[in-house]
Amino acid sequence: MVNLLSIADIKPKMRGWSVHVIVQEKMHIASSQKSPTRYQKFVFSDDQGSRVEEIMFNAAIEKMGSKLHTFKKYLISNADVREIEEQYQTNGLAIQWVISAKTVVEELSEQGSCVLTNEFTPISFKDLASYADSKSQTVDIMAVVVDSMPVIPIKRDSQESFVQRFLIVNEEMVPTVLSLWNTFVENEGKLLTDHHSKHPVLICRRLKVVTYNGIALSTRNDSVIVVDPPVRDARSLKN
């Protein structure tokens, strides 16, 4: 029988451990600025509410990345555990698991109910103005998609980018524009466009607040968008 630990029990350089986790965040694949290395980050949580950052590189992304889905539950065994240097810490997390092709990743058949971690606190749209054009502060939101607009090509810094805007409302029924950029257009944007008539619910993390025809929201490279998450709060908002 597998000896299961909690996330908090797993320390740097520890070997021979196993844990049940829920994928809370799955970020897009990114590339290092000074090398061809590709990486993808995740955030896991457990039933005790502990969280940890996970990262995989290059070949591991191809083999393991597609196995992990947001709000699904998994058995993880024997990832490399290391501390994150302070200047690279995000999400308030100081420990990182490195998943390689040798790491065991098994989806569990008993998924149970999904809940949001305490760290997710959606902001009131009425308070967005206080975060406008901040370079360091981001916001988390939960909202319903009301309408979608076409994809627009834009030249930025001599490079072509793509943006797609969506009209969203939150539980306060305050309308706001959300702009998706580049990779988000190709992935979440396409999904939202195809299903906008069903008014999907979004959970978004680490959005920036911008002044676009008033106060609006926009993705960053490290933003996370989950469409119609299987959590009670999202279902309540949609109803």
Rank of each mutant, 00 (worst) to 15 (best):
S6K: 07
I7E: 06
P12L: 09
P12Y: 03
S18L: 02
H20E: 08
E25M: 10
K26R: 09
H28N: 04
K34T: 08
V43C: 09
D47H: 10
Q48L: 14
R51K: 12
V52D: 03
E53H: 01
E54R: 04
A60K: 04
E62I: 12
K67L: 09
H69K: 15
T70R: 08
K72H: 14
L75V: 00
N78P: 06
V81S: 01
I84P: 00
Q87V: 11
Q87P: 05
Q89H: 02
A101C: 07
V105P: 09
Q111M: 11
N118G: 08
P122S: 03
F125V: 01
S130G: 09
S130M: 13
Y131D: 02
Y131W: 01
D133L: 02
K135W: 00
D140H: 00
V146S: 08
D147V: 15
D147P: 15
S148F: 15
M149S: 14
P153E: 04
R156M: 07
Q159K: 08
F162V: 14
Q164V: 05
I168T: 05
M173C: 15
V174N: 13
V177M: 10
L178V: 07
L180W: 02
N182I: 03
N182L: 06
V185F: 04
K190Q: 13
K190T: 15
V201L: 05
V209L: 04
V210G: 07
T211F: 15
S218M: 07
R220N: 04
D222Q: 01
V227K: 07
D228Y: 11
D228V: 00
V231K: 07
N239S: 13
